[in-house]
Design a protein around this nucleic acid. Sequence first.
DNA 1: ATTGGCACTCTGCTTGGGAGAGTGCTAATT
DNA 2: AATTAGCACTCTCCCAAGCAGAGTGCCAAT
Lengths: 345, 345
Amino acid sequence: MTAVLDDRGARVLRLVVEDYIETAEPVGSRTISKKMNQALSPATIRNIMADLEEIGYLCQPHTSAGRIPTGAGFRYYVNYLLARRQLARSERDLLRKVAEEGVAGADEVVRHASRLLSTLSRHACVVVVSRSSHQALRSLSLLRASTDRILLVAVLQGGWVQHRLIEDEPGITTYDLEKINAYLNDMAVGLTLPQLRVKILNEMQKEKARYDSLMHKALLLGSKALAESLPGEVYIEGRANILEQPEFVDDVQKLKRILHTFEEKSVILRLLDSALESDAIQVSIGSENTVEGLPDISVVSSGYHQGETAMGSIGLIGPIRMDYSRVIPLVEYTARVLSSILEHR
Amino acid sequence: MTAVLDDRGARVLRLVVEDYIETAEPVGSRTISKKMNQALSPATIRNIMADLEEIGYLCQPHTSAGRIPTGAGFRYYVNYLLARRQLARSERDLLRKVAEEGVAGADEVVRHASRLLSTLSRHACVVVVSRSSHQALRSLSLLRASTDRILLVAVLQGGWVQHRLIEDEPGITTYDLEKINAYLNDMAVGLTLPQLRVKILNEMQKEKARYDSLMHKALLLGSKALAESLPGEVYIEGRANILEQPEFVDDVQKLKRILHTFEEKSVILRLLDSALESDAIQVSIGSENTVEGLPDISVVSSGYHQGETAMGSIGLIGPIRMDYSRVIPLVEYTARVLSSILEHR
DNA sequence: ATTGGCACTCTGCTTGGGAGAGTGCTAATT
DNA sequence: AATTAGCACTCTCCCAAGCAGAGTGCCAAT
């Protein structure tokens, strides 16, 4: 359905999009003509624009205003016309510096990156960490947390730490605990959490026959701890940046919906879902993203990984009118930096 | 400076405040007269209102509009005129139910409570958890996280868990680690983290003399882990509720400042600071709160505790025009529930 | 194929009245 | 002496009309 444009059409579309990105106002033929150094007169531009409107790349908010790009127009622009702007050295350095700050856990690193990206881009930044399902266990420890609670600490491949409190099985001594610990650890290391869960359930079946009290307890504890899968986490930074966008300021309804959506992490998760697997930049424009209730919103996102496994995704959420030529390299670079930092954990 | 009001003045002030809370519009003398079943004519009310304005409890946005309460007016209302509304049974039950959901760590409990409180009140809810400084250690464990990193897991009095990754001292075997573990644990249990830090530094002084390599390593690790104090955490739920308030919707400048403030957790921390120590409800009205850049904002907050020690505070942030008669009992009850749940951890 | 010219349309801003709500003051009433 | 009715006054809000500006579409000329 993507109609291919001739040179002139493309040039005009590009100028319209870029002007609109800058000003958030409908763009008139005069403006475009000037931008081309009068190579073509406004009248000619008008004809071209009328063509572009017919194909569905531009539209008019009302008769006799300038044109604004449609979703399809933006899409064509992003796919074929976009000139990625180089990141300034300072920006790259800043992003790279995240590495040094992150002596702490991998969580901290991701969070820092998100915050930084949000200030650099002046948009809201979302990071999804999908640790539970893909990461292999590096170690698993049970600690006594109180008289009737046990703390399970899981260290995942590459510095992610998860803990969870579980109710105690009665009558587990510290000595028992150590044994159980060793037993579970043997079983667990190298598996992902869902894999471990399956394995434990299997073992329990077998165990029922040759009844060994200690093993039994170990398995029970293990299955309990993994009953609910550890949730992925979602961090959002820079929500308030949405307010910088003139188009939302005077449409309070939209604003409300957007900010409410930010509180529903599950929705956000779905929004970045498709970016999880691939490391390529994904751009979802306006109505393209299937999440209900977010009109005129674009998402630019990319997955990041740790070694071989996909770890999560990071993305920017802003108006359809985002400065893609700047935002895309930003996200891309950030995802790359993130991957390379996590590599060495 | 709080002028005491006679009966009639108090009655009128109260009606004005309550009407204004409801409508967010200036209140006229006619309205008040009606609300008193015409016991007094509008003209009389006007005189009384003029008096109230003189004392500084009311003001007019412009000549010949109705009156709105000033900060001082709200303060008088909260201090002397407020009739606390009973919480509905359903609300109390709902809040109490948080207990059951919170099988997980204490963090989860606090977070749940915050979210719930925000939906019940339709305001933004903030919780501060000041775990690090006051809570005594229940256990301290060092785990091998990777070849060059060690994971320190601290379980604090009452179910709070903290972990932190530290760079490894070279040449620590698993066996060493276990010894160090036992050694540190002995030293640590029962102390708060700041206390432990001091103790470790002291020991290091002594240790320098009679050089014992293992102990030395232990102390080094310990001091490293505690170099930065564990930060208190701040959760904010229901930010978007601010948008429900008509007075902010058409003042985008204020809106921006408020939402930006929400992103600065340190400022929020300061905002709830005074509530940390006491379990009594604190109401900070408008310009009373010393935090810059939050005009016309009120904070209703209360500390919560665990056993004897203050654990943090929970509060609602909304327009000066909050429904205090409802909000105050809500916060109070929530803080009580929180304290009682944490008691049994 | 491009362009200049022109009539037309739509928005946004300003202006000028009312209508409505509310006040303050004064004089009458209780 | 306190209360109230009455009245003039003030201020906002809303609506309509008018006007400038920007932009378009189309036709005829280049």
